[in-house]
């Protein structure tokens, strides 16, 4: 694989950046020049080698540093990781899915030995070597969701399924796009999506819920979502909103290319077999405008998409303060040439 893990920060001096080789594997979310809201769910089947879709859970050069940032968030605010009491079986389901996937897909970094319920987990990049008894939480240093959640990039929530609804009854959420796990835990699918504009009226969530209620074991699905973030900050939580929202005021025409980041979430949805719950993985990717425009197709398309956003979305994603500056920065990269379909680079 030859992954070299970068040593970088997502706060204070913000040393995060993508290596040149990492840029082209960014999951650029816009498949056409016009913005259009859609459920865009597709089977989470293995994608091309080297792409972020190659494996169910993508590990990249930011892994070690992201896990360090997560540990800092959890130390400051333990409520970012919560599970209601009836979710213990689902926590073990999640641990099993993540450990078996990582050990299979990245054998040079992760190893799992299983002998009945006696398990041995080795995580080389983080230096973890843990023997434990599967389904016995007292043999792990953290509850199962937190134990494995501290070792996998991306946020995770677990949805219990009952009464034809999905209930977000557990999660480890430290790099969210401005929503609070502590506030939303226990809500149903419509409730936790409550603040999202336009989509309810379009029936998007009703269709998505019906689809997810019938999600099958062994047939995961994925979709991409996006927003924009100032500075490569992972912890854009409502809890700390008063500490990071003023970043938006620091954008100038001179620094917009470095400061404004497109933040893409690859969301994976997996039926968990023992608990009948659904694991929702929210794997985030950050890239500055400056790096985005190094791919000519993205440089052309991004300004076109940003210009076509409905006002409700500009407000919901809080882009208002700097969208014009971003458009002005991007304008020279749109030479008017047609773009090819799909999100990937040409």
């Amino acid at each position: 694989m030859g992954l070299t893990f970068r040593n970088e920060t997502f706060r204070d001096d913000f040393t995060y950046t993508n290596s040149p080789s990492n840029i082209r594997r960014f999951p650029f979310p816009f498949v056409e020049d016009q913005y259009r809201y859609s459920v865009n769910i597709e089977p989470h089947t293995p994608g091309p080698k080297g792409s972020p879709f190659e494996h169910h859970f993508d590990v990249d050069e930011h892994y070690v540093s992201e896990m360090r940032d997560r540990a800092m968030v959890l130390a400051a605010d333990p409520l970012r990781c919560q599970a209601l009491p009836h979710m213990m079986t689902a926590q073990w389901d999640m641990l099993e899915l993540l450990m078996t996937s990582l050990a299979r897909d990245y054998p040079e970094h992760f190893t799992l030995h299983r002998d009945g319920t006696a398990w041995h987990w080795i995580n080389r990049p983080l230096g973890i070597d843990q023997k434990f008894t599967f389904l016995d939480a007292s043999t792990l240093p953290y509850p199962p969701m937190e134990f494995i959640g501290r070792q996998v990039q991306g946020d995770f929530s677990i949805q219990d399924q009952r009464d034809n609804q999905l209930w977000m009854d557990a999660g480890i959420i430290t790099s969210q796009a401005d929503w609070s796990l502590d506030f939303d835990v226990g809500m149903n699918f419509f409730e936790w999506h409550g603040p999202v504009p336009l989509a309810h009226e379009a029936g998007v969530f009703e269709r998505a819920l019906k689809f997810l209620l019938n999600l099958q074991i062994g047939k995961p699905v994925r979709r991409l979502n996006w927003t924009m973030t100032i500075n490569p900050r992972l912890d854009t939580s409502p809890e700390n909103y008063h500490k990071w929202a003023s970043d938006r005021m620091t954008v100038t025409p001179e620094n917009v290319g470095q400061k404004v980041h497109l933040r893409v979430e690859m969301q994976g949805l997996f039926r968990l077999p023992r608990s009948n719950a659904i694991l929702f993985s929210i794997r985030g990717y950050l890239m500055s405008l400056e790096q985005i425009v190094t791919v000519p197709k993205w440089g052309r398309r991004l300004p076109r998409v940003l210009a076509s956003l409905p006002p409700e979305l500009v407000e919901y994603k809080s882009l208002g303060r700097y969208r014009d500056m971003a458009l002005a920065y991007l304008a020279p990269y749109d030479d008017g040439a047609p773009t090819s379909p799909g999100g990937g680079p040409d």
Binding site: H86, Q161, R162, Q216, I217, G218, N276
Partner: peptide
């Protein structure tokens, strides 16, 4: 087919 559950016990 794969197992499908339309009759789960109420977890609460």
């Amino acid at each position: 087919g794969q197992p499908l559950n339309l009759f789960p016990p109420a977890k609460l």
